[in-house]
Design a binder for these strands. Sequence first.
DNA 1: GTCTATATTACGATAGAC
DNA 2: GTCTATCGTAATATAGAC
Lengths: 197, 197
Amino acid sequence: MTTVRRDTYTPETLLSVAVQVFNERGYDGTSMEHLSKAAGISKSSIYHHVAGKEELLRRAVSRALDGLFAVLDEAPASRGRAIERVEYVTRRTVEVLMAELPYVTLLLRVRGNTRTERWALERRREFDHRVADLMKAAAAEGDLRADVDIKLATRLLFGMVNSLVEWYRPQPGDGADRQQLVDTVVHMAFDGLRTSH
Amino acid sequence: MTTVRRDTYTPETLLSVAVQVFNERGYDGTSMEHLSKAAGISKSSIYHHVAGKEELLRRAVSRALDGLFAVLDEAPASRGRAIERVEYVTRRTVEVLMAELPYVTLLLRVRGNTRTERWALERRREFDHRVADLMKAAAAEGDLRADVDIKLATRLLFGMVNSLVEWYRPQPGDGADRQQLVDTVVHMAFDGLRTSH
DNA sequence: GTCTATATTACGATAGAC
DNA sequence: GTCTATCGTAATATAGAC
């Protein structure tokens, strides 16, 4: 499967252009005219590839959700301590977020005006719920502080993780920086910012 | 969408209705028709109070920014250790975020399509920069872990704080819950989730 | 202050040529 | 696959009566 610079679009290549524009202008703030200008083809040509704006949104958030749910399925549920699985999911979620940045960014900004948006929000809640279950298990094993509410801690942890989409921008050949970023997120979340006494 | 409340409006009371609708549907996804239905008056009556949609946005984000910048001016710059000022700013920011929730929510979702939005983004960057300076001072005094990048830590800290707008909803008479929430945020950020060994 | 009516523009989507 | 041209609708905003 050789990726060549194409002069014609497929739904997939069009998607990458659309997602970029959606993230720059917001989904509601993006018109088909904006998309056609960014893609370099006319509005009606876009309709040849996809049914409309909402299909582009659905394809984009699906890609993000697939990446995130795959992380949950990776985590071995039966072995080791739960806190290790939580750390693993946190680490891998940050990695997926960086690898699929524009798609996850769009997912995290979805509001709920259309059917597609409400479906995306529902799947996000399902993801959050499964992570919260992992956190509960870790707390039950005594590996999380007893004085914090687990549901709250889960929200804060993933609020921190998800905030990456607001400022992280990939640099060419930054594999080391990426890994350091992942380490810092996990370290800060579980051990805090303060100097150990 | 049809919350009809018939008193005479002022720009301020109209603002509270508009901000609520902006947060439900997104700024771009909100039409003047949506606002008029929510306010229970006609579109043209809204134009009697404000010049248009963008003025409502400007008033709303101004209110949020005023609250946030006031926190920075509260923090005594010359006394005590810098980490105490950082904790104070963190705590107060969470409190402002809860007190002015709809306004800060709107501010944090601004994209940058209009002049007003770009102005809001610029002021946000200024706020972040001043917080990062406080963090640098705390690191210089040896009170923050030496192995984390300060700029990154600042982003993660306020990413966590700002994520509250995604799920926090005020309850009547929840003063105690509020304070516990503030405590948890500060505690998690500076001491981490893991059980101390 | 609020209304109805409307001007004007932009939007999503389609038709049909090439 | 892409284009130009256009349809029908909905958007922001204004005019002018009450």
